[in-house]
Design a protein around this nucleic acid. Structure first.
Lengths: 396, 396
DNA sequence: CATGTTAGTTCAATGCGTGAACGAAACGGC
DNA sequence: GCCGTTTCGTTCACGCATTGAACTAACATG
C-alpha cells in the first residue's frame, strides 16, 4: 500500500517543472503559449518557469514561428548540451561505455573486449572507470557536466536496503556490490540495472514503445527476459527481479533448462535452446548465422518455436493486458522479422479475445546496442523527474 | 509514460490530507503528536488539518492517554459513522447487497437468489437497486450519508473511454453497460469491477495482504483468477482485464479448457477441472464436499494438482517478484489448508532462488464473502484519496 | 501610423506547510 | 498548595507556489 510522501508547496514546483521538461523533451520545440495548453499550467507559471530554466541553460530558444497576424511565438527546447549522460553495457564478451548528450545523441564510445571466464568484478569495474575517462576525453566533456552513469549488467540486480547487489551466475557474480566499487572510483551518481531492463527502458522511451502506458518488452537472445510496464512505470517487484519471463514454465516435465529446472520458456525459444533443438552442433560459435539458417530452412522445429513463443506471449497478454508487446533481442528480432504474422495467429489462439484485441504486437526498433542507451536513460529519468534546482555533480 | 497532472498548492493539501486519513484509518487511534512522526508533517499542519477534519466530523476524539509527566495526549480516530459504503456481490446464484460503515463493519445485508439462466441484466440491476433501498432502511441510513456503491461482477469489466462495459460469458452479458443502468436508478456514485478483483482488494486492505506493496492474490474457485499488486496499486492493464491467470497456458496441448483453448491452468487447478480429473461425476452439485473427499483421499490427481498449482505460482514469482502471494477462493483455501507446505516445496523447485526467497506464500484470511466488502473498498479508496472538502452525495 | 491580434510578463491575491513563540494540561518535589 | 518541568497542542508571520487580470511586446494590415 505504497503510502504517498508528505508534500510541501515546493514539491508542486518540482513536479510541474518535471512535467514541463518532459513535455518539451518529448514534444519537440514548443512556444510558451503552446505549453500552457500542453501542461495545463497558466501562462504566468509557464513564463516564470521557462524563465528560470532558460537562465539555468536547461532550455534554449529554438527560433520563431509566425502566428498569423500577431507577435511571433518563440520556440523553446531542451538544451542538448546542457549536460551529458554516460551509459555502460556490461555483456559476456565486452564492456562498452558510451557518452550521450541530453538528446541521446552519441558523442563518444569505447569498447573493451572481455575474454570468456575473465569476468572478475575488479577488472570490469576498472574497465568501466577507464572507459568513463576515455569517453569524457574523446567527447571533450568534463565530469562536472555529466549527470550520472547508468550501467546495464547481466543477471539480477537486487536492490536491498543498502547498496545494489548483483547476482550473475554466468559471470560467477554472487552478490557483487558493483555500485560501491564504482563510487570508490568516481563521484558521479551511479545507476545500475539489469541489461534486459535497460534495453526495455530504451525501447519504451525512444523505440517502438513510445507513448505506451501498459507494455511488455520481451528480449530474446541466448537468454530470455522481459520488462513489464504498468501505468507507465516499470514493474520491478519487491527485490527488483521481476521480469524473468524466460524461466516461467510452459510445459510440465519439459526440456531441461540451464537454470536447473524443466520446461522453461527459455529452453524452447532462447537461441541456445532453439539451436540445440534444431540439431545445430553445440560447438557452433556464430549463433546468429546458425539461427538464420534454421529459420530459412523452416521445418517442425521452427513451427514449434513459434507455437511456444506465441503461447508465452499469450500468457503475458492474459495476465497483464498490455496495450503493446515489443519483441526485441537479436534472436527475437530475427524470428519476428520472418514470422511476426504467424506469431500473431498463435497468440490469438491462446489468449482471451478481449485482451488480445487490445494488444498490438510489434518488433523492437532498437538493436541490441540499446543496452547502454537504456542505461543512460536511467540517469535521464532521474534528471527529468527531479531536475529541481539541479545540482551538477563534482568531478571525481 | 503516464505523465503527471498539473499540480497546484491545493493538491498538496489534498494529498497530505489523504495521507493523514490513511494513517489514522489503518494506524488505529493516534494523538496529534504521534501523527507528526507518522506523517512527516509539522505539528502546525497536523493541528490545522485535524481541526478541519474534526469540524467536518470525519474524525472524532477517542479518549486520552497519559504521557509520563506531561499533558496527556488526545487520541483521534476516523469516525466510523461519518458516512457509509455499499458493496454488491453479483454472483452466479445470487445478488448480495451489503451496507458498511466507514470501518467496514457490516450494518445490513440482503440476498436475492438468482435462478440459473435468469441473469437478465435488467433484472440484476433491479435487484441491486432494490437491495440498496432495503439495506438503507434496515441500517437506518439515508442515501445522503452513503459515499457510493461498489459492485463486484463476474467476467471482464472493460473500462473504455465512456462507461464500463461488462463481458460475462456465463451470464450471456456481452458489453453490458451496468453502470449506466445503475445511474438511471440512483444518484449515488457507482464503482464496478470484477468480483475476483474486489476480493483481492479486500484481502489486500483488510486480509492477509495488509501492508504488502508487491503481492499477487490468486482466487481459485470453479474458475481461477488473480489480482496483481505492484507498488501498492492493482495492475489493471490497458482495458482492465489483467489478471486472467487461469487462462495462462501451463502445458502445451494440454487438457481442453472451457475457454475453448487447451492447457490452461484453470483446467487443472480450477475446481471444475480438478473434480473432472478426479473422476467426480459431472452432475455432482455439492462441489465443496466433493473436493473435500478428493483431497482427503489423496492420490496422484491431488499430487498432480499441487504440482500444477505450485508451478503456476512459481511463474508468478519469476515474472512479478511479489513479496507475498495469497491463496484464496473456496477451492484455493481448501487445497491450501491441507497442502500449503507441499505447495511451497513445488514453488521452490520451479522458481528462481532470488525471487523465491523474497516471497511468502500464505492463505487468504477472508472467505468468499469478501467480494462485496472488496467492492465497497473501491468506494473507500476513493474517499481516502480524494476526500478533500468532501461532498456527500444527494439521495436518489 | 493607427488598429487589431497574438505572445509573453508582471503583480496582487490566495493557499499551503513550517518554525518559533506561545498556551494548555498534566506531574513531582517541597 | 505552589512552582518548575515536561509534554502536547495552537497561533502567527514567513516563504513559496499557482493564478487571473492587467499590462507590455511584437508582429500584420490597411
Amino acid at each position: 500500500m505504497a503510502r504517498p510522501e508528505r508534500k510541501t508547496v515546493r514539491d508542486v514546483r518540482k513536479g510541474n517543472r518535471g512535467m514541463l521538461l518532459r513535455t518539451l523533451y518529448f514534444g519537440g520545440p514548443r512556444s510558451r503559449h503552446e505549453l500552457t495548453g500542453l501542461t495545463g499550467l497558466s501562462a504566468a507559471t509557464i513564463s516564470t518557469m521557462t524563465g528560470d530554466l532558460l537562465t539555468e541553460k536547461i532550455l534554449m530558444e529554438a527560433g520563431q514561428v509566425d502566428s498569423d497576424g500577431g507577435r511571433p511565438r518563440v520556440l523553446l527546447r531542451v538544451n542538448p548540451v546542457y549536460a551529458y549522460l554516460i551509459g555502460v553495457d556490461v555483456a559476456e564478451t565486452h564492456v562498452r561505455v558510451e557518452l550521450f548528450d541530453l538528446e541521446m545523441t552519441e558523442k563518444a564510445r569505447v569498447d573493451y573486449t572481455l575474454r570468456p571466464s575473465h569476468h572478475d568484478i575488479e577488472l570490469v569495474a576498472r574497465r568501466i572507470l577507464a572507459g568513463i575517462d576515455v569517453v569524457l576525453a574523446d567527447g571533450q566533456v568534463t565530469a562536472a557536466q555529466v549527470l550520472g552513469v547508468g550501467i546495464g549488467v547481466p543477471g539480477i540486480v537486487e536492490r536491498g536496503a543498502s547498496d545494489a547487489l548483483i547476482h550473475a551466475k554466468t559471470f560467477g557474480w554472487d552478490g557483487v556490490p558493483l555500485g560501491a566499487l564504482m563510487r570508490a572510483g568516481t563521484s558521479l551518481p551511479v545507476f545500475i540495472d539489469n541489461g534486459a531492463k535497460t534495453m526495455g527502458q530504451a525501447e519504451l522511451w525512444f523505440g517502438a514503445g513510445r507513448g505506451a502506458d501498459h507494455a511488455v518488452i520481451v528480449l530474446i537472445g541466448s537468454g530470455v527476459g522481459a520488462t513489464v510496464v504498468a501505468d507507465g512505470q516499470a514493474v520491478r517487484g519487491t527485490s527488483n527481479s521481476a521480469g524473468e519471463w524466460g524461466h516461467t514454465k510452459i510445459e510440465m516435465n519439459g526440456r531441461p533448462c540451464r537454470c536447473g529446472s524443466r520446461g522453461c520458456l527459455e529452453a524452447y525459444i532462447g537461441a541456445e535452446g532453439l539451436l540445440a533443438r534444431a540439431g545445430v552442433p553445440a560447438q557452433t560459435t556464430d549463433w546468429p548465422s546458425a539461427l538464420g539458417r534454421v529459420l530459412a530452412d523452416g521445418g517442425p522445429v521452427v513451427d514449434e518455436t513459434l507455437t511456444y513463443l506465441g503461447t508465452g506471449l499469450a500468457n503475458l497478454i492474459n495476465m497483464l493486458n498490455p496495450e503493446r508487446i515489443l519483441i526485441g533481442g537479436w534472436a527475437g528480432l530475427m524470428i519476428g522479422e520472418r514470422h511476426l504474422d504467424q506469431i500473431r495467429v498463435v497468440v490469438g489462439e491462446n489468449s482471451l479475445t478481449q485482451p488480445y484485441n487490445a494488444t498490438s504486437i510489434v518488433l523492437g526498433e532498437l538493436g541490441p546496442d540499446a543496452v547502454a542507451m537504456g542505461a543512460a536513460t536511467l540517469v535521464l529519468e532521474e534528471f527529468l523527474d527531479a531536475s529541481a534546482p539541479l545540482r551538477l555533480h563534482v568531478a571525481s
